[in-house]
């Protein structure tokens, strides 16, 4: 419905931030994963956001996750000959994940989610205020 346009836009933002949170969760959970199906250590995953174009001259562009990219930076090498996945020189390839950076991203995602909820509530309050026109 046309009158819930702002709500739909905020909803798309919420969904996108949820997906970002899922990716951060998977990054932190796999911060020490040395084995994946490809045989390589786990690689950091990030979401690519894109604006969803509205009709020409219309407001209300939502956001959509167009792709989930893997971070191409090299794995972190750590010397640990006792590790089962250590190479001949005794180095273990750990994922290219910086937990501190992931935590910062996590906070950003949570705050963005909250911002979207605030916008949604503001829109709802405007709607309810409009219904008060002519009352009393």
């Amino acid at each position: 419905m046309k009158m819930f346009q702002a709500m739909q836009v905020s909803a798309s933002g919420l969904t996108a931030e949820r997906l970002r949170l899922d990716l951060i969760a998977s990054n932190i959970a796999n911060a020490h994963t040395t084995r994946t199906e490809t045989g390589e250590p786990y690689r950091r995953k990030t979401a690519v956001f894109a604006a969803v174009l509205a009709e020409a001259g219309q407001a209300g562009e939502g956001v959509r996750v167009t792709a989930i990219r893997t971070d191409p930076t090299e794995p972190r090498l750590e010397y640990d000959p006792t590790h089962p996945d250590a190479n001949e020189e005794g180095y273990v390839a750990y994922p290219n994940i910086n937990v501190v950076q992931e935590m910062v991203d996590l906070v950003t995602a949570v705050r963005s989610y909250e911002a979207n909820v605030t916008v949604l509530n503001a829109g709802k309050n405007m709607f309810l205020k409009a219904l008060e026109i002519g009352r009393g």
């Binding site: 009158m3 709500m7 909803a11 919420l14 969904t15 949820r18 709802k124 709607f127 309810l128 219904l131």
Partner: peptide, 22 residues
């Protein structure tokens, strides 16, 4: 999958009903 989707749907229905009542 997304809790907010369900809640937004419910909220939209509530607002639409409120408008109808008005």
């Amino acid at each position: 999958k997304d809790v907010h989707q369900a809640l937004i749907t419910m909220e939209q229905a509530r607002l639409a009903l409120e408008l109808t009542v008005q």
